[in-house]
Nucleic acid binder design. Structure first.
Length: 904
RNA sequence: GGGCGGUUGGCGCAAUUGGUUAGCGCGCUUGAUUUACAUUCAAGAGGUUACAGGUUCAAGUCCUGUACCGCCCACCA
């Protein structure tokens, strides 16, 4: 037998993945007679490279897909990539920058062409890496959010929403990233705390409004962004603020700009903060914007799109915003108008792509009206049509949905779906509206007939295409009406699949994506499909380093899954990752974690190697069905197998992946290998043992396959190569083991456990007096019950072998034989004969210790049985259990005392 | 300012609806190598479940409060 004694992942991984793909085992074709099971993969960015978050996310999905596929469902995992507008544009801009080029140098069309070229060349990195991971996606169906047909769906949605009056254009304060030079949605500009200052600026009152000496010369305002003062058009105070009461309505001279601005009163102003007087910059702050609207203030934009000062900033024009801040402060100080600077922590929005501090910026953008869309999406979750796992995310979702804000969807970049918005130059020039929203470019203006029409330059937020993923990936809207219209044969993705696979079964994703994507998909699903996009949402934790920090390149704490695959193998990566992923908890990773997975893969490998070396051909599996007279050890392991199977299936059905993995680990390693195989080793050629051993291995391989696809496939195939089992395509498509309830016998499991306890106790006794492992010893046993007596007697050989006995004697009374040390296991007394010098005092001490321990337990339980309340109120089962255990403990105590007496 | 999660042996985590003597992995101690696997095997040590109250016959589990850690949301200029 040429099986190496170490599992080498590199020999199996690429090989089997290739074969699975060649045999087309990942493809799922609709079959009305069968249940569908579908998952749409959260499409990774086309610029993406595999990180641990991907590894975890996709391993979970692959486990679910493989599990349901084996259960006989039509199991589809729909893969794809996201065009990731800003991220991809940034990457390509960086790449052409090496040649000293900016995108503007190329022009829009050429730049877009470059992006496509980049995509062709590098865009498949992430999908290649997902293959490495073992992901069993139906690659033939892979979609890209910029595909022609997908883009059509995006345009369709825009037009429909516009026609329903759910999309509008307007001038508002939005989040502007000066580096990416585009608007961002609120979700794309998360707030982070930064250390800044609060600057106190003096704004002089216009002279002559009060008689000399009856009013202050200045009003002091506090601001964190002094450069925006150039765009101030008022100062606001609280109307209740006595300090400023008489100043309301008066005029200030805005320093540096020398412009007159008014003091206004508004209850929005917090009297406690700063000086109680706030400068108002309607074009650069959302609050000030509101004030500006309310009080009819002027909107002065002082920034340009790059975050520099524009022509409204006068002398400061051209300076970067932070440079300008410095200069302005210097100038104010020079004029004695800077009162003081206080350190101040504030939270500012940051671009989620490049982490630049965003500027609130007044500009014309396109928005989606969210409240009407949110309503049915809230209902769907409230009514339980969509369930979150873990449940607590439901609240997070509902909270956000209840306070939903309109969604800014226009982006001032080039890479993305261009808005299907056209303008008639003539109409616009004449001050008429001239906006045409259309699926196709209009030939001429429907109003004036002019052909002078141009398209809006903006593109849509990437999430405006992702939110359609669960149905657009299935060729919506055609998919609703068309029958199969793609060429038949392998790889064809018939468009009627939408009907079969939608709604999808479960969405697996990370918490930070709930607002961006999950919530919006639900809204889109309800709006365009009139149905939920998925039934369950499984939210897994964030992968962190061992100190709990997020993994990031800048922190240098990244563990690269590809390195782990290289060093430990993919099965090890998958298994370890899953076994430490408690439902919904974050994951703290260190490299050593993967040793457990690697060791387990090796254990599976070697147990299989051992079995294969000893397995006869042409086994009849009938022999693995326990009969009344079957060997108790075989009945035990089969019962444990089916208990395990039941648990694993239940855990998978409830998304408790770590529990499933750990249950399997414990069963395979510690019960099957450590006990069962060791026990049957001497009788390994026994027909029944052969059949049982083989059955347990086969079933375990199947149970393990979703977690560790490669090692299980390799072994499964080797079993077939050896001719032990009939040939088959792949373990991937074997039926999931059938739970046979009648095989599970908990009483038997418990009963058998006693045998193992006796063996452990004997080994323990040997160890306590340092008997050499090779030295066989004499042991005498007295069982206080008949059942146990016959269990031990029937299996004496097992005890002999595993505890290395010279002889095993069954006593007829509970009398301690001479020259022995003793132990007890349940109701069995164990005596180990010792020929050397006996450490009587040590033995005595050991027993005394056990006695006091047992007494302690009895003391803690005893009063309960005398407690009338307990007897009255506790369920009968519990009382019986308690009674039973107390009886046992007391018997044990009596036996221990007797043992101690006999020693004296 | 709101909300959520966490706090269990040295470390990382488990523990269904409250119900035997709180489990697992790593690490540690001791011993074992012709005999499937040293990526192994055997045996063992190690916890008054963050703290303070409360409910209950019974609390790691439920309630109230406190402390610390982490995350999310929010327009404190």
């Amino acid at each position: 037998m040429d099986i190496p004694s170490r599992y080498n992942p590199k020999d199996t991984e690429d090989k089997w993945y290739k074969i699975w793909e060649e045999k087309d085992l990942f493809s799922a074709k609709p079959d009305p007679a069968k249940k569908p099971f579908s998952i749409v993969m959260p499409p990774p960015n086309v610029t993406g490279i595999l990180h641990m978050g991907h590894a975890l996310n996709n391993t979970i999905q692959d486990i679910l897909i493989r599990y349901h596929r084996m259960k006989g469902e039509r199991s589809l995992w729909m893969p794809g990539t996201d065009h990731a507008g800003i991220a991809t544009q940034n990457v390509v801009e960086r790449s052409i920058a090496k040649g000293g080029l900016k995108r503007q140098d190329l022009g829009r069309d050429k730049f877009i062409k470059k992006v496509w070229e980049w995509k062709e060349q590098y865009g498949s990195t992430i999908t290649r890496q997902l293959r490495k991971l073992g992901a069993s996606c139906d690659w033939a169906r892979a979609r890209f959010t910029m595909d022609e047909e997908y883009s059509r769906a995006v345009i369709e949605v825009f037009v429909r929403l516009y026609e329903k009056d759910l999309i509008y254009r307007g001038n508002y304060i939005i989040n502007w990233c000066p580096r990416c030079q585009t608007a961002l949605s609120d979700e794309e500009a998360p707030h982070h705390e930064i250390q800044g200052n609060l600057y106190y600026l003096k704004y002089p009152l216009k002279p002559g409004q009060f008689p000399m000496g009856t009013a202050p010369e200045f009003i002091v305002v506090a601001t964190t962004r002094p450069e925006t003062m150039l765009g101030d058009t008022a100062v606001a105070v609280n109307p209740k603020d006595k300090r400023y009461k008489k100043l309301v309505g008066k005029i200030l001279i805005l320093p540096l700009v020398n412009k007159e601005i008014k003091i206004i009163a508004d209850s929005m102003v917090d009297m406690e903060f700063g000086t109680g007087a706030v400068k108002v910059t309607p074009a650069h702050d959302p609050n000030d914007y509101a004030l500006g609207k309310k009080h009819g203030l002027e909107f002065v934009n002082v920034l340009d799109p790059r975050g520099g000062m524009n022509e409204n900033a006068g002398n400061y024009k051209g300076l970067d915003r932070f440079e300008a801040r410095k200069v302005i402060l210097e100038n104010l100080e020079g004029k004695g108008l800077l009162e003081k600077i206080e350190p101040h922590t504030l939270s500012a929005g940051h671009c989620y792509r490049c982490h630049t501090i965003i500027e609130p910026y007044f500009s014309e953008q396109w928005f989606v009206k969210m409240q009407p869309l949110a309503k049915p999406a809230i209902e769907a979750v409230k009514k339980g049509k969509i369930k979150f796992f873990p449940k607590r995310w439901t609240k997070v979702y509902l909270n956000w949905m209840d306070n939903i804000q309109d969604w800014c969807i226009s982006r001032q970049i080039w890479w993305g779906h261009r808005l299907p918005v056209y303008y008639c130059k003539d109409c616009c020039n004449q001050g008429k509206k001239g906006i045409i929203v259309s699926r196709l470019k209009p030939e001429k203006c429907p109003d004036c007939g002019s052909a002078d029409i141009y398209q809006d330059a903006d593109v849509l937020d990437t999430w405006f295409s992702s939110w359609l993923w669960p149905f657009a990936a299935f060729y919506w809207p055609e998919g609703l009406s068309l029958k199969a219209c793609l060429p038949a044969g392998r790889g064809a993705a018939p468009k009627e699949d939408l009907k079969y696979f939608y709604p999808t079964s479960v969405l697996v994703t990370a918490p930070e994506i709930i607002f961006f994507w999950v919530a919006r998909m639900i809204m889109a699903g309800m709006e365009f499909m009139k149905d939920i996009p998925f039934k369950d949402v499984y939210i897994h934790g964030t992968v962190r380093d061992i100190e709990g920090k997020k993994m990031s390149k800048s922190l240098g704490n990244v563990i690269d899954p590809l390195d782990i695959i290289n060093e430990y193998g993919v099965d090890a990566l998958r298994f370890s990752l899953i076994s430490i992923t408690a439902q919904g908890q974050d994951i703290f990773l260190s490299k050593e974690r993967f040793e457990q997975g690697r060791n387990f893969a090796n254990k599976i490998w070697n147990a299989s190697r051992f079995i294969l070396m000893n397995l006869d051909q042409g086994l009849s599996l009938e022999e693995a069905v326990p009969k009344e007279n079957s060997n108790i050890i075989n009945r035990w392991i089969l019962s444990r197998l089916h208990s395990t199977l039941k648990e694993v299936s239940k855990d998978l059905d409830t998304y408790k992946f770590n529990e499933a993995a750990n249950t399997l680990y414990g069963f395979f390693w510690h019960e099957f290998c450590d006990w069962y195989l060791e026990i049957i080793k001497p009788d390994i050629k026994n027909r029944e043992n052969q059949a049982v051993m083989y059955t347990v291995l086969e079933e375990c391989l199947k149970l393990l396959h979703p977690f560790m696809p490669f090692v299980t496939e390799e072994i499964w195939q080797r079993i077939r190569e050896q001719g032990t089992a009939p040939a088959g395509d792949s373990i991937m498509i074997q039926p999931w083991p059938h739970i046979q309830a009648r095989m599970i016998d908990k009483k038997l499991e418990k009963h058998t456990q006693c045998l193992f306890d006796v063996i452990t106790q004997i080994r323990n006794l040997r160890g306590s007096i340092e008997i050499k492992p090779e030295q066989a010893v004499k042991v005498s046993i007295y069982a206080h019950s008949k059942a146990k007596h016959s269990l031990l007697k029937d299996n004496a050989r097992i005890i002999d072998n595993l505890a290395r006995l010279e002889s095993l004697e069954f006593l007829v009374s509970s009398q301690r034989p001479g020259a022995t040390i003793s132990a007890i296991a349940e109701d069995i007394d164990i005596y180990l004969h010792f020929t050397g010098l006996l450490d009587l005092a040590g033995e005595q001490h050991k027993i005394e210790e056990k006695i006091s321990n047992t007494e302690k337990i009895i003391r803690s339980k005893g009063p309960r049985m005398e407690n009338a309340e307990f007897i009255k109120k506790a369920p009968k089962e519990i009382i019986d259990k308690e009674k039973e255990s107390l009886v046992k403990l007391n018997a044990e105590l009596a036996r221990l005392r007797k043992m101690a007496d006999e020693l004296r």
